[in-house]
Amino acid sequence: MTDWTTVCNLNDIDPDTGVCALYHGEQVALFRWGSSDTVYAINNFDPIGKANVLSRGIIGSLGERPVVASPLYKQHFDLQTGVCLEDSNVQVKPYAVQVAHGVVQLG
């Protein structure tokens, strides 16, 4: 059974934007899909730009896939898998995430 850790309130994340949470010493980028309660979580480190910035990228869709574009050089990362769309050898770590009672939890 997953041990869920609350990192922030859902309302702390403006619709269609991201924030960065500190989770067991790791930086996790959290993105809120529109004004829904769907939240995606991937590691905040951009392996191509080599900086902790992914939470500050623009999110959107490519085909059916929810993605974030790196704010540095604009590569796309799949928000569900962390895979880079431009180079499938590059992947950032995805995290299990849930929204319950208005709070965002990582597990």
Binding site: D14, D16, T17, G49, N52, V53, R56, G57, I58, L72
Partner: peptide, 19 residues
């Protein structure tokens, strides 16, 4: 409008290579 803003506009600053 906030979700529309590009890398620099969204924090009203110019992001450099290290973020």
């Amino acid at each position: 409008h906030i979700g529309l803003q590009d890398t620099n506009d969204i924090f009203l600053g110019n992001m450099q290579k290290d973020g």
